[in-house]
């Protein structure tokens, strides 16, 4: 696909976990988007995609939050999200909250059609094939469920990671199997979740990689927390940090600044 207008106006949807937990991922996204030739803005009226309410069965709260998003993100060429999960919520689910309301549904469809997960936006829309980043590490990549199955994100992060100087990718077995995060699932059913993430960390350990990457903060916090509980030295990062060449001064997830 050829890049659209010369400098598309892109709204960054930061996501609540990046906002709260790992702001650097938001800044990494801004850098990557600007390097790709986008004009990036961060609408201030945004909070959350509404997924926690939606998956808890609270459709009406999810609808109210979605209406807020429709207002906050109207008028941009694209909306870009550093998360497959929130991206999937906006693209695949949000419009259906308005199945009984054709006007809002049309606005929701329009927003969904303009919304992309960060890494796939860079490759599939902006046509980015290589990046100027360095990270000396052997990494392994976990495919987060919503990104993989709702948005088809599989090859894109691997393609861009291949251009990062010094980085080798060592694939884990069952990279596509859920890590056990599942939003509130991980606290509603902690026993099941813990066993699932422990299965994941076994697969991670077998690769010999020193760095674990993924595109979703939820999964990353879950896997990082488990690796650290197990005493593993594997470092954990959002893929955008590596692609933006930010690993130098930013400690990995769950580790303190030195």
């Amino acid at each position: 696909m050829t890049p659209p207008s010369p400098a598309p106006r892109v709204a960054l949807f930061v996501t609540c976990l990046v906002d709260l937990h790992r702001p650097s991922v938001g800044f990494a996204a801004i850098k990557l988007l600007e390097d790709a030739g986008c004009r990036v803005e961060v609408p201030l009226a945004q909070t959350c995609c509404g997924q926690p309410a939606y998956n808890a069965g609270d459709r009406s709260t999810a609808r109210d939050l979605a209406r807020g998003l429709l207002d906050a993100f109207g008028g941009y060429d694209y909306v870009v999200v550093p998360s497959g999960s929130c991206g999937g919520m906006l693209r695949a689910h949000m419009p259906h909250l308005f199945d009984d309301d054709p006007n809002t549904r049309a606005r929701a469809d329009a927003l969904a059609g303009r919304t992309y997960e960060l890494v796939s936006f860079l490759t599939d829309v902006m046509g980015v094939t290589t990046l100027d980043a360095t990270c000396a590490a052997t990494a392994t990549y976990h495919d987060s469920c919503a990104g993989l199955r709702e948005l088809g994100i599989k090859a894109q992060p691997r393609a861009l990671l291949a251009s990062v100087a010094g980085l080798t990718l060592s694939e884990m077995a069952d990279a596509e199997v859920c890590c056990g995060f599942g939003g509130t699932f991980c606290v509603k059913y902690p026993d099941i979740s813990t066993r699932m993430v422990a299965d994941k960390t076994k697969d991670i350990a077998k690769t010999g990689a020193g760095l674990l990457l993924a595109g979703d903060m939820g999964c990353l916090l879950n896997m990082a927390g488990r690796l650290q509980r197990e005493g593993s030295t594997v470092q954990v990062r959002h893929v955008a940090e590596v692609l933006a060449g930010m690993t130098g001064d930013l400690p990995p997830i769950g580790e303190a600044r030195r």
Partner: peptide
Amino acid sequence: GRLSSLPLAGGWTAGRDLPTPEGDTFF
């Protein structure tokens, strides 16, 4: 950079550490 227990977060911390935020929000 992480906590091994936190009041009200026992569901999380029973089986894993809780990585803590960078410190200030993105916004």
